[in-house]
């Protein structure tokens, strides 16, 4: 069953250089209990998309449906509060995400207090901490964030989110600020939480290996738009979009494919190219293959959405249409 449904979502920021279209018409679904990895290079808008889903940024256009009901309004409105309890976020930098003046107990209990779930608070906090691998939990109650390691801090953040028993966990680069040695542990913990509690997870990452390890499905984002979505093994083993292919070709483990270094300038979300937004950097277009296929004109002028090419595998590319 579909848990979260994002449709035509647009988030724009006015800047001096003009309107930055950080998220520019995103369609995305998260099924119940699944792990969906959202991959893309820096600046493609994946963090903004994640922040918008949890309600930290406002969308100018588009809808977000959660369990079939549209999420709108803000602040105290009852449905919004309920949504905010059921969708939780894990942040990239656990050190910044914890108030240095709050003990770990207070940090984990904060969500319970915000949502007036104060009954047997201590038991719930202890439970969340131990399920996040901080055992025995009582030992961590009175510690301050700076007294525990980076990996433990991320566990505290995860415990603070899981204590509210959410249905969806949005994780923004959950391990990229951690030591390589604890990344695996945190990923294992997150995978384990999905398997034991049935929470769904949207993991934002630039690391394709991470996506491969943890996710059932992968969505590839480029310049504010999703360009390919499918089951992890399908997207990562037989990528259909030229951008996905280029991303995968530079993964060190991928020895069987020729490396494609993308040409052209890094994309600027304030000046999104017309037509297919990837065409100025697209190897297919640059090599003249698009011309041969007779779609070069379309690449330059027709902006396209996702189209299915196989079971649960959708791509936004004129060459695959």
């Amino acid at each position: 069953m579909t848990l979260l449904e994002v449709e035509g979502l647009c988030v724009r920021f006015p800047t001096r250089r003009g309107l930055v279209r950080a998220v520019d018409g995103v369609d995305l679904t998260v099924e119940e209990g699944e792990v969906l990895a959202l991959v893309g290079e820096s600046g493609c808008g994946k963090t903004t998309l994640a922040r918008t889903i949890v309600g930290l940024e406002r969308a100018q256009e588009g809808t977000v449906r959660f369990e079939g009901k549209e999420v709108r309004g803000r602040g105290r409105a009852r449905p919004m509060r309920d949504y905010r309890r059921r969708v939780q976020m894990v942040f990239q930098d656990p050190t910044g995400a914890l108030n240095p003046r709050q003990t770990i107990y207070e940090a984990v209990a904060e969500g319970l207090r915000v949502h007036h779930m104060g009954q047997d608070e201590e038991r719930r906090v202890a439970d969340a901490l131990s399920r996040s691998g901080l055992r025995p939990p009582e030992r961590f109650f009175t510690r301050y964030p700076h007294e525990v390691s980076g990996g433990q801090r991320q566990r505290v953040v995860i415990a603070g989110a899981m204590v509210l028993e959410p249905r969806l966990l949005v994780a923004d680069e959950p391990v990229s600020s951690l030591d390589a040695s604890v990344r695996g542990e945190i990923l294992g913990l997150m995978r384990n939480l999905v398997d034991t509690t049935g929470v769904a997870m949207l993991v934002v990452t630039h690391d394709l290996g991470l996506a491969w390890n943890i996710a059932e499905r992968v969505a590839v984002m480029y310049l504010g738009r999703i360009v390919e979505v499918g089951r992890a093994e399908e997207v990562l083993q037989s990528p259909q979009h030229p951008y996905t292919q280029a991303l995968l070709s530079v993964v060190p483990e991928a020895k069987h494919v020729e490396q494609q270094i993308l040409q052209g300038e890094t994309p600027d979300p304030a000046a999104i190219p017309p037509g297919c937004r990837f065409h100025p950097r697209c190897p297919l277009y640059q090599s003249g293959d698009a011309e041969e296929l007779g779609i070069a004109q379309q690449c330059r002028t027709v902006d396209l959405g996702l189209a299915p090419i196989a079971n649960d595998h959708v791509v936004a590319c004129h060459a695959r249409a």
Binding site: L56, R76, F91, A97, L98, V114, H115, V157
Partner: peptide, 15 residues
């Protein structure tokens, strides 16, 4: 970050 985290938890402005 912790203000963001608190907002994501659903905290009010007063909180």
């Amino acid at each position: 970050g912790y203000v963001d985290r608190s907002r994501a938890l659903g905290a009010s402005r007063w909180h």
